[in-house]
């Protein structure tokens, strides 16, 4: 054969390579690869656990946030309710005060009216009494003009002509 090619030796080399491949597979390739796969699986598991914990933490955070939001909403509602009730109470008090004021004013007006009526009646009565007294005095003093006498009496006994 050219180049001294020997098929028997080629077959021997094949056998040699086959033995080497098999031996390296059993002794080196397989165990190293198994270990590498095992380590990869281990770190993947760690990563998975970390991801699970992260998701759990995220969920917890979301729950807490929801609770916070709910509490905020409750606080807002309670504040609104309190404000409403305070406004209502204030309005009631105002209404009550207004009613009282109206009542007081009405009462005061009524009392004032009564007082005015009483004073007017008393004034009329005093006037009538004065008029009656003056008429009696005039009637008792002869020679004087009754009208002048009346005027004098009315002006406190001074002669109206002297002014």
């Amino acid at each position: 054969m050219p180049l001294n090619i020997d098929f028997q030796q080629i077959l021997l080399h094949w056998m040699n390579l086959a033995i080497l491949t098999g031996g390296l597979y059993v002794l080196l390739y397989k165990p190293v690869k198994q270990f590498m796969d095992k380590r990869e699986a281990h770190y993947q598991e760690l990563e998975r656990q970390a991801a699970g914990k992260l998701a759990q933490a995220e969920q917890l955070k979301a729950e807490r946030q929801a609770q916070l939001d709910q509490a905020g909403e409750e606080i807002r509602q309670a504040r609104a309710k309190a404000q409403q009730s305070a406004q209502q109470a204030a309005q009631e008090q105002l209404d009550q005060a207004q009613a009282q004021a109206q009542h007081i004013v009405a009462k005061a007006q009524a009392e004032a009216e009564q007082s005015r009526e009483r004073i007017r009646r008393e004034s009329q009565r005093e006037l009538r009494e004065l008029a009656a007294q003056a008429a009696k005095r005039l009637a008792a003093r002869p020679g004087t003009d009754p009208f002048d006498q009346f005027l004098d009496l009315a002006e406190g006994g001074k002669s109206h002509e002297s002014r």
Binding site: L3, Q9, I10, L11, H13, W14
Partner: peptide, 12 residues
């Protein structure tokens, strides 16, 4: 560097 080994490796 032996042609038989090179042929064996190439053909395999």
């Amino acid at each position: 560097s032996d042609v038989n080994a090179a042929i064996a490796t190439g053909t395999l």
